[in-house]
Design a protein around this nucleic acid. Structure first.
Length: 744
DNA sequence: GAACCCATCATTTTT
DNA sequence: TGATGGGTTC
């Protein structure tokens, strides 16, 4: 096997029986998985049809698919490369009727779930304050993960009034989902397990099919997923799990680190291969990470090493406050750029999304293009959810949740009172809301709304006819048109409305794209893709931007230059973790820190502020304990020591050349500015290669500062630093590639 | 039904 | 600080 180290090779060629691959950060994990699949097929002559590779995210599945395709060639397409959830959907679409459901079930996402719980609370007259929706969803999810039915949950709650009420909510929620012919994300896993338990013939079918199973990011699996994998692998026992207990950072969403820690107890004959050579980071960075993670107790014994050069020391800087930190980061970015590094080689990582704000503001001031990762999902936007709501209703008329969402959108005179009346009537008669809408005449006391309902029913029936024999894109266009949704937005004529229309066009593109590429396009499958595939706004290639994201989102990525900001007690590690009674909480924060450090290839910049605004309050945080855990000889501290554990903020905002402090842009203006920066519409289609057609003495125009005369140009790295004396804004120094100066 | 005011509340996120 | 949701008023 070409290009693999002995350990990697060992992991690839051990194909029979249970195998645990402990893959440290940057140890070439994906390479091993893909090579192993290739090895199974070419050396062991395993039929690709018998291979299953499970990942967590669609992104990971897509990447693996691509790599497998390129390395395996013939037969690669018959390998199942899939996320847990899409695998289960595929199985349930075929066999859900065996559990008494319809194979055409709808999938409820977080938003639908929320709406369902809200309705349940209303129905049971529970107070949302006492039983917060978020907490209820979490409780239900937890119950499902441990296979507790509402009845069993109730039994366990014996004597606990609150838990008994939660059991009631859970029961009612399940009832609602069942009558709506819907499954939530947890159901997808649990009901598949139910199916396997109740129908051993179905289980056997899949056991026979999946003779070789691989699970990536095994440390992220929850209990239900563990059970599912165990069942599938029970017959042939060719189960290979890959993961890193040190990178387990998703406990809050159910991940159970013991799945990986106790793998050898579960499978006593398991072979364990440790991939400990790191190919990513300098030894200074790697050892800094090792130093931090060594403070955790509950972990598999391993030590990462590298042949990479020592590199620069890790740099820690303490700034006066959060704003100063942002200024300092920007300054460092410019320094790196002067050395010829590009923005796409850099990333800023933080613990909480709220921290991005100050950084964004500063980057806008300094004209540094950035890209935010994470944030609101495309499909979570209101206008998209409305359209998807229509599609869901058309696909599954029993879906009361979606129908309630769109019945009065856009406004058509079917108000809350009417809907409540109909809902109550439906509940009494055991009908679905849609049945009632179609036959509104039977509901007493609807008054004027009756005619509105009739028109609405007519509209929906029309859509259903189009859905039956028309193309999906035609259906979509029809909805947009006939509901008056588009017209209403067009009339509004605001920036926001235009942006919504743009999103609706984007959805139209996605639908056309789906139609074009799907083997057999169907509304059900389209909706499945929409619910299961979060739309991760892919980074546009070629655009030079710095990436900003949470530490969680950074998992699996790497950058030459990494900034970890806000290294402060109670921010990171988070106060919530420190206050929690879970003794593992601090260790999970430390793992998160480990994940962050190991993202860096060349250089790592850590920083903290002495004063920070948190939730509108000024706080004076101490330096994070994690800083002290980095071996002293690997870190350079910038600044003087102060009385407590840390380093005081002696780095004030230094108004250096190029930074341009202007008053904070206000309200809506600022927002739309942010959007153009983050969303990229401003930069789309702009030449990436800057054409410099001006020189000293020329008059140029700047997008914000207006007219000015170039007074100086010096070469800095791959770029030019240009000094311009503006007519109104004074003298500014800036990078040619960022300043977008035009000769006039 | 929309516009406004006040109270409340705050990690991390994918499917 | 700032987003969100509920309640009130016009």
């Amino acid at each position: 096997m070409a290009g693999l180290n002995p350990k990697q090779e060992e992991a690839c060629s051990y194909t029979e029986g249970p195998l645990l691959i402990l893959a440290g950060a940057g140890s070439g994990k994906t390479r091993v998985i893909t090579h192993r699949i290739a090895y199974l097929i070419s050396e062991k002559e395993v039929n690709p049809y018998n291979i299953l590779a499970i990942t967590f995210t669609n992104k990971a599945a897509g990447e693996m698919r691509e790599r497998v395709d390129s390395i395996v060639g013939f037969g690669a397409e018959s390998i199942w490369v899939s996320t847990f959830h899409s695998m289960c959907v595929r199985i349930l679409r075929r066999f859900y009727d065996r559990l008494g459901g319809k194979n055409s079930f709808t999938i409820y996402d977080a938003d639908d779930q929320k709406a369902a719980v809200k309705e349940v609370l209303r129905l049971l007259s529970f107070d949302e304050k006492q039983y917060p929706i978020r907490a209820m969803i979490a409780a239900i999810s937890k119950a499902k993960e441990s296979f507790l039915s509402p009845d069993e949950y109730d039994r366990q709650a014996a004597g606990n009034y609150r838990d008994q009420n939660i059991a009631k909510i859970y029961r009612e929620y399940q009832k609602r989902l069942r009558s709506n012919n819907a499954l939530d994300f947890d159901d997808l896993i649990c009901r598949t397990i139910d199916l396997f338990m109740q129908h051993p013939d179905v289980l056997e079918l899949y056991q026979e099919r999946f003779r070789y199973i691989m699970v990536d990011e095994y440390q992220d699996t929850n209990h239900a997923q563990f059970v599912l994998v165990k069942m599938l692998a029970a017959k042939y026992r060719n189960l290979c799990v890959v993961g890193d207990d040190d990178q387990s950072i998703y406990k809050f969403r159910g991940a159970n680190i013991y799945n990986i820690l106790n793998f050898e107890e579960e499978y006593p004959d398991a072979k364990v291969v440790k991939l400990e050579q790191n190919y990513r980071s300098t030894s200074n960075i790697l050892n800094a990470a090792n130093g931090v993670i060594a403070n955790n107790e509950g972990r598999k014994d391993k030590s990462l090493w590298t042949e990479n050069p020592e590199g620069e020391k890790v740099l820690f800087t303490r700034y006066e406050d959060d704003r100063g930190e942002a200024v300092g980061v920007c300054k460092r970015i410019f320094e790196l750029m002067k050395e010829g590094r590009g923005l796409s080689e850099m990333a800023v990582l933080y613990r909480t999304n709220a921290q991005s704000r100050v950084l964004e503001e500063q980057m806008i001031r300094e004209d540094i293009p950035y890209q935010l990762v994470g944030g609101t999902n495309f499909y979570a936007r209101k206008e998209i959810r409305d359209m998807v709501g229509y599609l869901k209703c058309i696909a599954n008329p029993a879906d009361d949740i979606s129908l309630s969402r769109i019945i009065n959108v856009p406004r058509r005179g079917i108000g809350d009172t009417t809907v409540t009346k109909m809902r109550d009537f439906a509940a009494e008669q055991g009908m679905s809301l849609y049945d009632v809408v179609v036959d509104a005449g039977v509901v007493p006391g609807l008054g004027r709304a009756a005619s509105k309902l009739e028109a609405f029913a007519e509209l929906m029936q029309g859509f259903r006819r189009v859905a039956e024999d028309g193309a999906l894109s035609v259906l979509y266009a029809d909805i947009l048109q006939k509901t008056g949704y588009r017209e209403e937005l067009e009339k509004e004529n605001t920036d926001e409305a235009r942006s919504r229309l743009e999103n609706l066009r984007e959805l139209s593109n996605k639908i056309s794209d789906y139609e074009l590429h799907a083997e057999q396009p169907s509304l059900t499958e389209l909706l499945e893709e929409i619910s299961l595939v979060a739309d991760t706004e892919e980074r546009e290639d070629g655009s030079e931007r710095i990436t900003m994201m949470t530490l969680h989102s950074a998992k699996g990525l790497e950058f030459p230059y990494v900034f970890m900001v806000g290294m402060e007690e109670r921010l990171f590690p988070s106060g919530m973790s420190l206050d929690s009674d879970d003794p593992d909480a601090e260790e999970e924060e430390r793992r998160l820190c480990y994940v962050g450090i190991t993202r860096a290839k060349e250089q790592l910049f850590l920083s903290a502020a002495s004063r920070r605004m948190v939730n509108g309050n000024i706080t004076y945080p101490e330096v994070s304990r994690f800083i002290g855990e980095i071996p002293e000889n690997l870190i350079r501290m910038e600044g003087k020591k102060d009385s407590n554990r840390g380093y005081s903020g002696e780095r004030y905002y230094d108004e250096w050349q190029g930074s341009t402090f202007r008053p904070k842009p206000s309200g809506a203006g600022r927002k739309s500015y942010l959007r153009t920066q983050a969303g990229g519409s401003l930069q789309k289609g702009m030449p990436q290669q800057t054409i410099i057609d001006y020189t000293v003495g020329d008059t140029v125009k700047h997008i914000k500062f207006g007219r000015g005369v170039v007074t100086e140009m010096t070469k800095g790295g791959s770029d030019y630093e240009v000094t311009v004396r503006f007519d109104t804004a004074g003298e500014k120094r800036m990078f040619a590639s960022l300043a977008k100066l035009r000769k006039v």
